[in-house]
Design a protein around this nucleic acid. Sequence first.
DNA 1: GATTATTATGCAACCGATTGCACGCTTTCT
DNA 2: AGAAAGCGTGCAATCGGTTGCATAATAATC
Lengths: 335, 335
Amino acid sequence: MPVTLKDVAERAGVSPSAVSRTFTEGASVSARTRAKVERAAEELGYMPSALASALSTGRTKLIGLVSNNFHNPVFLEVFDRFTRGLQERGLRPLLVNLSDETDPANSVRMLRQYSADGVIVASSTLPPSFARAFADAGLPVVHAFGRATPTPEVHVVGIDNVECGRMAARALVACGYRRVAFLGGPASATSTQDRGAGFAGEIAQHPGITATESHAEAYSFEAGRAEMQRLLAAGKPAEAYFCGDDVLSIGALSALEDAGLSVPEDVGLIGFNDMEMAGWQNINLTTIRQPILEIISAAIDLVVTTADDPGLGPKARLFPCQTVERGTLRTPAAS
Amino acid sequence: MPVTLKDVAERAGVSPSAVSRTFTEGASVSARTRAKVERAAEELGYMPSALASALSTGRTKLIGLVSNNFHNPVFLEVFDRFTRGLQERGLRPLLVNLSDETDPANSVRMLRQYSADGVIVASSTLPPSFARAFADAGLPVVHAFGRATPTPEVHVVGIDNVECGRMAARALVACGYRRVAFLGGPASATSTQDRGAGFAGEIAQHPGITATESHAEAYSFEAGRAEMQRLLAAGKPAEAYFCGDDVLSIGALSALEDAGLSVPEDVGLIGFNDMEMAGWQNINLTTIRQPILEIISAAIDLVVTTADDPGLGPKARLFPCQTVERGTLRTPAAS
DNA sequence: GATTATTATGCAACCGATTGCACGCTTTCT
DNA sequence: AGAAAGCGTGCAATCGGTTGCATAATAATC
């Protein structure tokens, strides 16, 4: 039913090869045949089959976009940017949702079956081994928002979470808080581990300042809210909290307000991510901004590069973060 | 490099056909050959190429998931459910982001090139003609969250937005509000048009009650907030607002609070969608719930059915909505 | 204008599967 | 035991393109 290359060839009075070459960038075709072919194609409404083409060239232009973050609104922006970025480069995002799975095997299998040109794992919670499973299967992979080790197992594009933890600690110290705490995401998330470690490490440099740590069950508003409620019920909350993600901060904020505490007067709060909501006037969250756009753009570039030249060793590309001062920490002057 | 069917056949000492049949549901293979083939496949780590298979069967198991809603957090849940639902049925979501485009031509072309088995347009703002472009190109299509006309042009799964507008109106009337308003999304969104029409229609039944209408520029927090600020600045706000979406309500709520007005004492608010945040204690938004899960599940079923049997005429499947009473409308008793 | 270098084109094999058809073998029935 | 029916298997064509190679056509060179 659909128009094939052969149909076009027949109509244009040329060989199938000529037609194929007309649609292949940089192939050798004379202006006259090209014109004939293009006219015939136009008349017939021809459209090359990406499948057939992929079968012989080995390239599908399909990029697996693998994630388990379907509850953090920040990731809506992440998906938005990834899909647009990929589309702009003529690539197609094949979305893989592994909310239910912890084992990469299924995703690896399916992306290999479709012979995806590359894979982007977009998650701040998955361990490096997860992304490596794709690499082991021969798929070019980039872990966006992943953990960067000195000797990365796979390409990583993201931020230095340990340093970010330190930044948060410094911000709290600068404001004069003396009993601070880290309210992290799930303890299994690498991002939380690293941010927590950086935070604790920096605080340890300051004798007289104490830091505690606890964890929400997920990176979600509800979990942040529940954890803060637990902390409040347990009594004696810290003077200021570094939350592992803005969603946790905002959940915590709502718990604090419900408890009749005011921020930053009674309790200080610094978040992470600078999601859209953080800037709302009635939230106005002090937070640490990670450059999502740059990360995504770099991740796409890197996966494309790797697909073209699988040779190069794992690279970690980290972007600096920035503290965004708003209204949930008391001013240093007031300390 | 990768293991092919032929390799397995050779190793198992059978013909390629035998191997293919082993992996084809319901094909005729003897137990002995099947065992041989399975062992050989196992040893070689064979994995059928979805591309090659698609080329000969004509089925790719690829479903285009087309949307332009990448700024409303509700859609994160929508994507989550769609991807999981598709994966459970052995289908793969090929995500198409048309935030920038208003013309379906590009999406149609690319989904045809990949010969997607079907397309789901997930959007409450696109006109029916958009979805029809896919149908015209021969792609089975279902418009989820779309507008249902008496004689639909394509399959639609969603809700009766006009009736929802009436529900909202009834809720406001029941609370005794006399000057009400509809704060809709973009005027071009079909969902807003219909909700507004239902709302106005119902209010018109009640002499003495007046309704006005205005529009936010997008379905987003910021837009809702900005529009409410504009209304407040213009003076004399309505007694209660029906917002075309929870994100608008929550944006509006923040504008009201900033202005020192309290809800529901000074201004009543009813939203639409019942997104997760609507239930937060410090928001506690009265809203109208649309059954997202059922809609998504039905949309997937319908697109699969249509792919198997393209014959059947366009069908509209609508689900009832429900008013969720929380705390942003004054109680009827108090009227 | 003859000769060489270059560019265009077609042929045919191939990418990795599926499937209609024909044939051989085992069952089943009379 | 012989015929009819049924199952299992392999052959070969096909899905819709791509591409190396050989050759034909054109351009460049002297």
